[in-house]
Write a protein that binds this DNA or RNA. Structure first.
Lengths: 356, 356
DNA sequence: TTGAAAGCGCTAACAG
DNA sequence: CTGTTAGCGCTTTCAA
């Protein structure tokens, strides 16, 4: 097996200079005669330009990085498929990393990408703005998907609720006065506010009054939207957070159900939490939707498999990934502020009327 | 924002040659004094060696490629997580591609990886050996995971069953006489034979006689194992294949149930097919397990969510990915023939006794 | 133990 | 329109 042909081989075989070959192959100007000959020789030699040389020359690796917390979270898998589809269409490679929701691993992966000179990155962030500042300072074009990095917990506002309120205000266009958003990166997110609001109204319409929110890492905006939707005063006990693992999600769901028997409906902030809620409810002999109504964020194939099938707030995971990839690729000059995609409440069978 | 420091910067600042810096940073020999100084300067300058230069010099990109048919197939997501975990531990990047089960896209992605000089690749293959020969000929170290490329359909044996039988014979160590396996790549697969056999015996023990196999692309070995487990003569109609999409899986399942009302149990060759089987059964008002018993290949989190929870043949997806990554990384010299991991029948609630 | 120098394959000035 | 040339940042002989 002989080694791959280089640009030099092609140039020699075609009797032209290497620059000409380079030009022809990258669509530069050349006489039809020359162009034809070069193309012929290149094809004949089965020449494929090496990305190595080009990358070094341009001091940057093509393609993009993609960082998600966990691929076995079906929503992240959908999002990744979207990114891959766009990248494939563009012929660009995607370097993938999974962070397990751990800011430290996230940082390390960012470092790895920097080392590879990958300067375009799509991320479902786990760390806060402090985690992400280095990447952006290093000149990376980053597009956040699904959620934004949390505010750094530099001072008092350490709990999700407070952060979430901040984000909510920002979402509303209300200037928060202090601490301007330092991160200059576009994002592709779903309209969490509308999605949650619709779900809460739907549950309200069914007569539910004690509604809980079960969230995970990165669900702060959703929690805030939930708070806004149920209206003050928010029963603090009815907003609980898990830490990301399936075990933690289960524990949170189980704890919630046990501590608040008066609960009649729950909104799960993501599919892993919805899964946990179904499991915990079954374990505690709570019937869905007879004893407890459930709405889950994320539409995933298995939502239909449950008995009853789960009512969900669908967000277009694949589209979000595709759009994010488009954004990060066409980051030419203008930096669009980001995209917000609509959600849709898909009513199946996991919600029923409130029974006294 | 100043540009990143290069090896030259470090060399100058430390008053040594670039070669020395390179040596020190890659653990070569150097006097303690020099080493210390270089390290100090490097740290001070926040120097990170650029992979670009190294890659070009070594004419190869570090890390590995990973090709899977579809990340929203939870098993593939698990496998990918395993690969990523190993890669992360080794500090190596992973270039991901999703092929949608299409050999053509697979070929294109292989071409892309070749262009990037990624010379290590883990794949859940969709194409046949003809698709993969170029990659291996080009000098790539390929490790197949979950399944092996099918024999090229050069002549008569065009249908899955025939191919499957071939593979089965190979698995048994029976030399097939003709057509020696030309592909020289190790693999990490589950013990499909044992898994399927155990499932079939379990169903037999429950009294089932009309058992069907519902397969997808790449499930040839499983189909063959199924044929062997039920024993000749195999009712051809009871072995059906879908093409990979969820729609196709649903159609196959639905068609199977409708055409064979005498069916009392089905083995789904993968989680997407299991999903389809549950959906199709419900649509046709077939009760699980009253009317139809179901065993699904792959254990996935949502298998427990179904009512009743699904009895599954679990294969260690994450481990398989991790092992494959280990294999492809430590491909030093010896080329191990591959690994076969055990499966486990996890009995939940989707199988019941056969009722006349 | 160390430094100088030669590229790896490619692109982008700059001449011709 | 085309060829020559100078590197991109790194590793690796080869001498000193």
């Amino acid at each position: 097996m002989d080694k791959r042909a280089t640009i030099k081989d092609v140039a020699e075989a075609a009797g032209v200079g290497v620059a000409t070959v380079s030009r022809v192959l990258s669509g530069g100007s050349a006489s039809p005669r020359t162009r034809e000959r070069v193309l012929a020789v290149a094809a004949q030699l089965d020449y494929r330009p090496s990305a190595l040389g080009r990358n070094l020359r341009q001091r940057r690796t093509g393609g993009m990085g993609l960082l998600v917390p966990d691929l076995t979270d079906t929503f992240h898998a959908q999002l990744a498929e979207g990114v891959l589809a766009c990248a494939r269409a563009a012929g660009e490679p995607v370097v993938l990393g999974s962070t397990a929701g751990d800011p430290e691993q996230e940082s390390e992966l960012i470092g790895m990408l920097l080392e590879q000179s990958v300067d375009r990155l799509i991320a479902v962030p786990s760390g806060d703005e402090d985690t992400w500042a280095p990447a952006i300072r290093a000149g990376m074009t980053v597009v956040f998907a699904d959620r934004l990095p949390a505010r750094p917990s530099s001072d008092e506002d350490d709990d999700p609720a407070a952060t979430a309120v901040n984000d909510l205000m920002l979402l509303d266009g209300v200037s928060s006065g202090s601490r301007p958003r330092p991160l200059d990166a576009p994002s592709v997110v779903a309209d969490d506010r509308a999605g949650i609001r619709t779900a809460v109204r739907y549950l309200r319409g069914l007569g539910h009054r004690r509604i809980a929110f079960l969230g995970g890492p990165g669900h702060d905006r959703r929690a805030a939207a939930f708070g806004a939707a149920v209206g003050a005063p928010v029963d603090e006990e009815l907003v609980v957070f898990a830490t990301g693992s399936r075990d933690s999600a289960y524990a949170a769901a189980s704890g919630l159900f046990q501590s608040r028997p008066d609960l009649s409906a729950v909104v799960a902030g993501g599919n892993v939490l919805g899964e946990a809620a179904v499991l915990a409810a079954r374990e505690l002999d709570l019937r869905v939707p007879r004893d407890i109504s459930l709405v889950m964020y994320d539409d995933v194939p298995w939502a239909e498999l449950c008995s009853p099938p789960l009512t969900v707030i669908a967000q277009p995971g694949r589209d979000m990934g595709y759009r994010a990839a488009e954004l990060v690729l066409r980051s030419g000059g203008r930096r669009p502020r980001g995209v917000m995609l609509p959600t849709e409440l898909i009513i199946r069978g996991s919600c029923g009327p409130h029974r006294q």
